[in-house]
Simulated scan of single mutants.
Amino acid sequence: MGTTRRVTLNDVAAASGVSRATVSFVLNDDPHQTISAATRTRVREAARQLGYVPHGVARALREGASRVVVINIDAGMEGNYSRSFVGGLDSELGLHGHVLLVRHGHRTAEASRQVLDAITPRAVLNFGEAFLTGRELDDLGGGWRDGLAAHAALQIRHLVDRGHSRIALALPDADTPLATARLRFADETARSLGAAPLLSFVVPRPRAAGTVAVRAFRAAHPEVTAVAAFNDDVALRALTAVQDLGLSVPDDIAVMGFDDTEYGELMTPALTTVHIDAEAHGRLAARLALGLDPGGLSPVPARIIARDSA
């Protein structure tokens, strides 16, 4: 029985009327090449119609355990940190001839079993696993050096440095071990800096519910002058609620985000936040998953994006 010939870059180039190099640049999304949007669309459409599969992906699916790494990302953990982590993980795996399969959101045991049976991956990673198993100081960044503890501390320190001694941590309406770890690290930082123990409260969806929650918290704790949010999403809910109550940010209460999504910059006032580049964390995870020496990879320190809200 004959076998179906694999579609190549040359086939895509011929179908789209461009060079093989142009096809490669488009399909690899090379940022250093200036290629028109029309050409990019034409190349991608030709690749889709021909059923082109990059050679590395095809090889990974054929070889199963030796070439595929799976990462699971739970709902509520998506953001700039997870995107940069996955980017580093994917790039490093690619350097070593492996491909990455990313699974987002809730997963049933049956669905997970079907995936594992179908591709027999080299490794299965759970994003933020250290935080989900109580080993949050074992993260690849070293916890207080450049991991979650250090990032949480950076947020609280920024607010304390601006004169806030009564700070609350605004949490999402989904209870996660990650939120528990953040609260513990943030509270430890506040105490070490001489601030009062942190209070915490949930800012739920939708907008009206968030406003009710913030009103109730403000009534019970008028001494709080700053809110450190679990992430930018929660921060924007809190900021909107404060404004709905007729209060001013940051004059009446400061609001600070975490993880630097693009939406914070678009608000008025623009959101102060913590930016974390996790590419090196992702690369380290890839090397460990493949049993390689982690080498001299150093995570980039997190930094404050100072805007108008805090």
Rank of each mutant, 00 (worst) to 15 (best):
S16K: 10
F85Y: 10
V202M: 05
P206R: 07
G296A: 13
R42W: 04
F217I: 12
L284V: 08
L116Q: 11
P121M: 00
D259V: 04
D232A: 09
L239D: 05
I119D: 05
Q33F: 09
A168N: 03
H164Y: 08
A150C: 06
T108S: 14
L89V: 06
G97A: 09
E92N: 02
L125I: 05
A219S: 15
A254K: 09
S84E: 12
L50H: 13
L292H: 09
V274H: 00
R42M: 02
V274C: 01
G64P: 10
H151M: 04
A15T: 01
G142S: 05
I253P: 06
D146V: 14
D139H: 06
H104Y: 09
S248H: 12
V12C: 02
A130V: 03
Y52D: 05
Q33R: 13
L154F: 08
V300S: 10
A306M: 10
A220Y: 04
L61T: 07
D244K: 05
A118F: 11
G147Y: 08
V249H: 02
F85L: 06
W144N: 07
A213T: 00
G79D: 05
A226W: 02
S16D: 05
L297H: 14
A302K: 00
N72R: 13
G246Q: 04
L239C: 11
D175S: 15
A219Y: 12
S16N: 11
T240G: 07
L132G: 15
R48A: 13
M1G: 15
G194T: 06
A75L: 07
D187F: 08
G128V: 15
V18G: 00
G257S: 05
R237P: 10
L292Y: 06
V57A: 11
A235G: 14
D146L: 01
G210L: 13
N28H: 12
A58N: 11
